[in-house]
Design a protein around this nucleic acid. Sequence first.
DNA 1: AAGTCTTTGTAGACCGATCGGTTTAGACGC
DNA 2: GCGTCTAAACCGATCGGTCTACAAAGACTT
Lengths: 193, 193
Amino acid sequence: MLRLTREKSDILPLVAEAFRAFGYEGASFSQITKLTGVSKGSLYHVFPGGKEQMAAEILAGINGWFVKNLFEPLETGEPNAALAHMWTEIDRYFHAGGRICLVGAFALDATREHFRAAIHDYFNRWVEALSRCLVRAGAEPLAASAFAEHTVLTIQGGLILARAIHDEAVFSRALRRLSDSAEALLACQTPPH
Amino acid sequence: MLRLTREKSDILPLVAEAFRAFGYEGASFSQITKLTGVSKGSLYHVFPGGKEQMAAEILAGINGWFVKNLFEPLETGEPNAALAHMWTEIDRYFHAGGRICLVGAFALDATREHFRAAIHDYFNRWVEALSRCLVRAGAEPLAASAFAEHTVLTIQGGLILARAIHDEAVFSRALRRLSDSAEALLACQTPPH
DNA sequence: AAGTCTTTGTAGACCGATCGGTTTAGACGC
DNA sequence: GCGTCTAAACCGATCGGTCTACAAAGACTT
């Protein structure tokens, strides 16, 4: 079997960057071609479904990364370790605030209609996984659920504000506040030893 | 002087809704025409600068509304009243989570480059006004600044998450948590009576 | 090993539709 | 009837998407 000179896995991240930079509608084929160095013909060979397939596969890839690196540890690993792991991985994944969340961006524009289910599942699972992790770590279920929602939403907001005022430190500060509040939440809610 | 049959002030909010629904790139003239009931010719008569002018005037209008209804009260009014006023006005303005923040949406996509200054100023002034208000209400400057940033970012994140998982209550809960933490912040930081 | 076939991937010309934007003919209020 | 405003025909450019011509690389035949 002949191998692609450029693997799909090599092209996808570049296309993702195009979507990040210009949005789904704004990322035209000429932009994508320029950014990836791959011609339109090749792109359609790899992604017969066009832009929609590209976006769908990118979302699936992002979701896969989060499931493997964040959600599964949160769901099955040692709670406190998984939590600590999440803070560092999130900071790295979003380049400390310099890289926006494509799922969040898609959630805001018209793209949402096409990928509603994928977007919904991504955020729902994140909140759920985090909430259950906190409960396993000793938090009250209600407080855990609220804090999980608060966390995911803060990360999204931090990325927006950081980009808006062109100050990535906003994101790092938000992340720091989150990990601090998580510790406070668990410290005061764990049953007294 | 002849008056426009439809005033610019009548058209602008409708165009804004088109941008909200489809994004700056995604909102084509045919969409805008359909949504406003105003033909392309008329639109160009009112906005010779095309979409860019529309977006600029919309951003200016949004900014004006926030300055008048939120920032100025925060900056010059009685701090606690201004704060309480902000929570209710924000909830109303964003339709309790059902309406996204256009400035935030523009901050995420390529549009940002065109309107960088407007976006930057909007968010900066919001954070600054809120921070100074909290200081005047008795908060520590550092804590006030952190909380102001936290507030603006939470509102943006709340709008994203609410739209993403199609549950407007997410936004209301976030807003409630904000006003509660604001009270806690001021209660513990005001000098003992 | 040379020559051809087949399969796979690439480049970009090409397509109709639609984009943002302009122009123009005429409707309508003064 | 004059000047303002509207509707829509019209423009070149570019959109997402298709198609074709061909390059590259085994596999098969001899």
